[in-house]
Design a protein around this nucleic acid. Structure first.
Lengths: 343, 343
DNA sequence: TTGTATGCGTTATCAT
DNA sequence: ATGATAACGCATACAA
């Protein structure tokens, strides 16, 4: 009744009439130390039994699991999924498997996630988490395994880091809006808390407005998830202020979640993107072209970010030493109706 | 320099002054077979060393890994992500960890995925794949491990199956549209190929139209990803036919991907949801309220589907025998502007 | 009730 | 160049 258990190295050895050690050598050091006839016999036996090494046993013995632990703050976030996709592909191509742990936005589970993954002897970590909360991830927790941070830096951790070039991207967005005649800018972001990417973008927004001199004015609104009224008021205020001053106004959204909230608020207020209020949002979700006249966006190279993160990690696994690296990838401005120049 | 490797059972045994077997017993059969003083000593040692068993070693020795393999056809699909979320939560609550394998829509990698996961001794599988292509998943491939299918059945596999109640959901949608005065119905689906859920929905659509008698007419359009022109023609035709016959027409979309394509086509044609063409789509993505007057939708209980799938599997892992079960969960109709009754 | 010995499937260190 | 053999960390028959 029981399916024949998968062949082990011992089975192969028996069939080939050699020792386990020889089989192991054939598998791992195929190049050196091998007589032709024996190699052929082992190869035949492997093929005949459809033998595949047990990664678990290899991990136990050799210490390496060929597993990469990927921790995501919130799998619901399409950004995270896109990054995951890129990372997974790169890992698979390199013969690694990705173990995913989703925090479900419960920041206090970071430590739990690390421990669970470390238990399975993952060779390294890709982290897209907040780096805050009870179980702060420190170098200790990683048990010496290499890690790479994505999108969000962690206080006091100097590991490799991959992310969008937030400053340049913000400049792209602001420059485009100002060129299009927008003079009142409102940047809407999720509460910054300690999240590095949010802080960087907000700071970059300030710098951009500053650099435009007095002709452009900018404000920042931190938008709590449950504060629809506050967002409505902010947008309404922006719109009326601009009308009184006979200036064009525009909204910048810090990510796709905020874009969604802004779009909902615009609908509630009966305002039109493009004509009433200009708009550019970070992230370029698939539905962006379908809202109103189409939402202009800063598209992140998410796939490349994921791939780069994985590559960084794989290099470290190959023994690359040296100081922590920073990879800042450029965003791309996608212009649609919401930021059309003066009508 | 090397971090002190994590404590092993041998370390605990030494500190507690007992044998490894005793420690193991304390951990696994805490209830029976234990003298109080020894139990206390072991407990203290475990705490002192912050000992955690190595899941890998446990898997190798005991045969169980407390790992669940989750294979997804396309992680980009929000439906899959939502299911994943529910399943992951249920698994984690039960002390299992989920290993994710994303096929990236490459159906020929099903077998590869199973093998990779099986290599890590996963205790069971949750499958959200097509069940077609080169490496068809059969009972053999699973190596006797239990599995549960989500959303899509596989030909010739009688395992537990969890999904939306497609027939009932389609009835809900059609009934609502007909009640609202729509008489010309067009169902747009991705090419059915062998995908069971697509076939079921298409069949259910036919049955619904049939049951309405001659007053309602229905058509099906299979929408290839690259055939924007074909979709445009279908929608245009539907609209004009209805106008000539002075009847209201409506579109049903088979899933969120199709909804996106239909929305893009509507924009290209300059048609308005609600006034020009009614609309109800399967799946209720977060952006549905923001397109035009809001898109009506059949919301799937995705989280519950994932949770149920995990629960089914966990029950099998606990030894539940018996024939394959089917869990059909009801969808919920969310009415928005796109299906508003006659204006 | 507790300790001893063995096996799980590999890799690596020794001999040969 | 190849073959024994000892780890790796744990669970479990079996012996005491």
């Amino acid at each position: 009744m029981q399916r024949p258990a998968r062949a082990t190295i011992a089975d192969v050895a028996r069939v080939a009439g050699v020792s386990k050690a020889t089989v192991s050598r054939f598998l791992n050091h195929r190049d050196r130390l091998l007589s032709d006839d024996i190699a052929a016999r082992v190869e035949a036996a492997v093929a005949q039994l459809a033998y595949t090494p047990s990664p678990m046993a290899q991990a136990l013995s050799h210490g390496r699991s060929r597993l990469i632990g990927l921790i995501v703050a919130d799998i619901t976030n399409p950004y995270s999924v896109a990054v995951l996709r890129g990372a997974e592909k790169a890992c698979q191509d390199a013969g690694y498997l990705v173990m995913l742990f989703n925090l479900g936005n419960d920041i206090d589970r970071e430590r739990e996630a690390i421990d669970a993954l470390a238990g399975y002897q993952v060779d390294g970590f890709i982290l897209n988490t907040l780096g805050r909360g009870t179980g702060l991830i420190d170098a200790e927790a990683l048990r010496g395994k290499p890690a790479v941070l994505v999108d969000r830096r962690h206080a006091g951790m100097h590991t490799d880091f991959v992310s969008l070039d937030n400053a340049a991207a913000m400049q792209l967005a602001c420059g485009h809006l100002v060129e299009g005649g927008h003079r009142e800018l409102l940047y809407v972001t999720e509460p910054q808390k300690g999240v590095s990417s949010r802080r960087e973008r907000t700071a970059a927004f300030g710098a951009c407005v500053q650099s435009q001199g007095p002709r452009v004015s900018g404000m920042v609104f931190e938008c709590e998830a449950d504060d629809a009224a506050g967002l409505d008021a902010a947008l309404q205020g922006l719109h009326q202020r601009a009308r009184r001053a006979r200036r064009r106004a525009a909204v910048l959204a810090g990510n796709a979640v905020v874009t969604l909230r802004v779009a909902a608020a615009m609908a509630r207020l009966g305002l039109q993107f493009g004509s009433d209020l200009g708009f550019v949002g970070f992230d370029d979700p698939e539905w962006a072209p379908l809202i109103g006249p189409g939402l202009s966006a800063i598209a992140q190279p998410t796939e490349a970010i994921g791939r780069s993160a994985a590559t960084c990690l794989l290099e470290r696994l190959k023994g690359l030493e040296g100081p922590a690296r920073q990879l800042l990838l450029p965003g791309e401005l996608v212009v649609r109706g919401s930021s059309a120049p003066a009508s």
